[in-house]
Design a protein around this nucleic acid. Structure first.
Length: 457
DNA sequence: ATAGGGTTAG
């Protein structure tokens, strides 16, 4: 009795150190306890494993599993769930499946958490069919899907383009007595907004309110963003005002989102006012707010001010991120200072930023805008990773320069890359080819694209 | 645990 009480105290100590992100101290507590003759149990180790998985890495968590086995304690489903959560969070599917296998070998059955994580991972990897198979596994294994399971299903279906299936699934669940919460509604509203089905989204919003629940910050942000996406600035601003009146603008994120939308449309004065208002409302600046302010100064052409903000950001103990530098590189490109942009890109590299893709895209775009499509092409060819933005910039500008043959080659490699292809770019190339007399080439390109798309699946 | 949210193209 005395021993088990001490173990409980040890566990409370360990979990609070893990929550405070102090693994060293948790380890010391464990050693001290053992020295006093207090024996750790499965809970002790599970807490430590979870801490290592969350704060350090999957491998470091797994090391604790080894220690636990040496100590003669058998892992349980909670042990594996921490490891599986970390693996699936990093989209390491095969690692997660290895853990399932190992779990079976220990004679431990996966529980609902294990399956939920696996489902989520499969959806993120764009494999909705396999995720659906996991849902079947849940039912076959006599586990009942939880609210989280349903949300993961609905979200996964939406994210993979099956908005209608998500909606049908949702309605079926309701028929079986499922009472959706705000999160479920948010997932669907977001899915419908992204699928440009605003009427269906607003019907669900109405349903949410009629169910006696209140929309939350996420609901409002989703709706506001979709207004901005469809260029309905005033409607978006009205939502922002509503958020403010309800106190959902406490973290400054909404301010920055609205400012970003204003900056994009060149309404710099209003963006300035808004950022000032944010300060007046007593919201502290974080990296995001600094980035927004830097973006604003760059667009105003005040690069000294932008650099001063950068300085201030670092002095206040915050850290610049990849956005900060991409914003500066883009700002210089937009101001026509390609040399400055290249210089800042190098600086960014020297700071150890691995992903310079967005900054490179900005420079490719900047080179095109000052009429140097050849240098833009050279940079494009030298890039080791490209995304849909990279291709869109190059293809669009080659078309603008009426270099349709080159554009059609790049468009084709774009299709083959599997990245999302902008319809406007594809049309520009095909129309361009036809209008300049290359009718056969246009037809050939079209059939090649068709075939490449078919071959992908 | 699972919803939203900042940089680049059109």
């Amino acid at each position: 009795m005395v021993v088990s009480l001490s173990t409980r105290l040890l566990n409370i100590t360990i979990v609070s150190f893990c929550k405070a992100q102090q693994l060293q101290k948790a380890e010391v507590a464990l050693i001290d306890a053992i020295r006093l003759g207090i024996l750790p149990d499965v809970v002790t180790y599970n807490q430590l494993i979870d801490g290592y998985c969350r704060l350090v890495s999957l491998e470091s968590g797994y090391d604790v599993v080894r220690r636990m086995c040496i100590a003669g304690i058998k892992p349980d489903s909670v042990t594996f769930n921490s490891l599986i959560a970390r693996a699936t969070h990093q989209n390491q599917l095969s690692r997660a499946l290895d853990l399932f296998e190992e779990m079976f070998q220990w004679g431990v059955s996966p529980d609902l958490w294990s399956y939920n994580n696996l489902m989520h991972c499969l959806f993120k990897l764009g494999r909705p069919d396999d995720a659906y198979r996991v849902l079947n596994d849940i039912i076959v294994n006599d586990l009942s899907p939880s609210r989280a399971t349903c949300n993961i299903m609905i979200n996964g279906l939406c994210k993979n383009g099956y908005t209608n299936n998500a909606l049908n699934y949702f309605r079926n669940l309701q028929r079986y007595g499922f009472v959706p919460g705000v999160m479920t509604y948010n997932i669907l509203i977001n899915g419908l907004c992204k699928a440009r089905r605003l009427n269906a989204a607003s019907r669900l919003l109405k349903e949410l309110v009629e169910s006696g629940q209140s929309p939350n910050a996420a609901t409002y942000t989703t709706i506001m963003k979709s207004f901005f996406r469809f260029n309905k600035l005033e409607e978006g601003l009205a939502i922002f005002a509503l958020m403010r009146s309800k106190g959902y603008t406490f973290d400054g994120f909404a301010y920055c989102t609205v400012s970003g939308a204003l900056i994009k449309r060149g309404r710099l004065v209003e963006a300035n006012d808004l950022m000032a208002q944010m300060t007046r409302d007593g919201i502290e600046l974080d990296t995001l707010s600094y980035n927004t302010k830097i973006n604003l100064r760059c667009r105003e052409g005040k690069f000294e001010d932008a650099y001063q903000l950068l300085d201030e950001l670092e002095k206040s103990g915050l850290e610049c991120d990849v956005y900060t530098h991409s914003i500066i590189v883009d700002g210089m490109c937009k101001a026509g200072d390609l040399e400055g942009a290249q210089r800042h890109l190098q600086y960014m590299g020297s700071l150890g930023f691995k992903s310079t893709l967005v900054a490179l895209n900005c420079i490719v775009n900047g080179l095109c805008k000052v009429g140097d499509v050849d240098r833009a092409m050279a940079l494009f060819e030298s890039m080791e990773t490209r995304d849909d933005f990279t291709y869109a910039i190059i293809v669009h500008n080659l078309c603008k320069a009426r270099r349709y043959k080159k554009a059609s080659k790049i468009l084709f490699s774009w299709v083959k890359s599997g990245l999302k292809v902008l319809r406007s770019c594809q049309r520009a190339v095909l129309d361009g080819l036809r209008d300049s007399g290359y009718i056969t080439d246009a037809k050939k390109l079209q059939s090649k694209i068709w075939k490449a798309r078919m071959l992908r699946y």
